[in-house]
């Protein structure tokens, strides 16, 4: 008989402890943000998809050494260049990133000895079309310049 009442008492006590913690948390500061209206700032080292880094003139620093293309584990980088007349080096005509396969590992950024690519801070990337994730990075760079 005593055990019966003891059990009721411990049950009620558990309930009371749980409720008191919930009650305390109810008045603790809010830790979430209302996402589309508020956003958190990304950490400086956040690894988004890669982007070409402009030099002082806003042009690309890429010298077409192809190190990034070779380093990429998933084969997402396609680089094309052509040799313009009168110039010694090739110029970049296409830098395409297939973001559907990118694992954001950063091998390409580490492989580049010319600091021509870096991570962007973009994370609002959602689409129902696969084609939206084939990024033309050179075009992005030119758009940024304008």
């Amino acid at each position: 008989m005593i055990g019966y009442f003891q059990e009721i008492f411990t049950g009620l006590w558990s309930l009371f402890v749980g409720m008191s913690i919930s009650f305390k948390e109810f008045f603790s500061p809010v830790v979430t943000v209302e996402y589309p209206y508020e956003t958190v700032t990304m950490a400086p080292r956040f690894r988004g998809h890669i982007d070409l880094v402009p030099d002082e003139n806003g042009a690309t620093k890429c010298v077409l050494c192809m190190a990034c293309e070779r380093a990429c584990p998933s084969g997402c980088i396609t680089i094309e260049g052509e040799k313009k007349e009168g110039e010694k080096k090739k110029t970049l005509t296409l830098y395409q990133l297939d973001f559907t396969r990118c694992s954001l590992c950063g091998c390409c950024v580490e492989a580049c000895n010319f600091e021509a690519i870096d991570f962007s801070k973009e994370y609002n990337l959602a689409s129902t079309r696969k084609e939206d994730f084939y990024f033309d990075l050179l075009k992005r760079l030119q758009e940024k310049r304008q």
């Binding site: 950490a43 400086p44 080292r45 956040f46 690894r47 694992s103 954001l104 590992c105 950063g106 991570f119």
Partner: peptide, 15 residues
């Protein structure tokens, strides 16, 4: 996760 993100750049899939 915030702490680790600040040093590694990722929240779950670290490299």
């Amino acid at each position: 996760l915030d702490m680790l993100e600040a040093v590694t750049g990722a929240r779950l899939t670290y490299c």
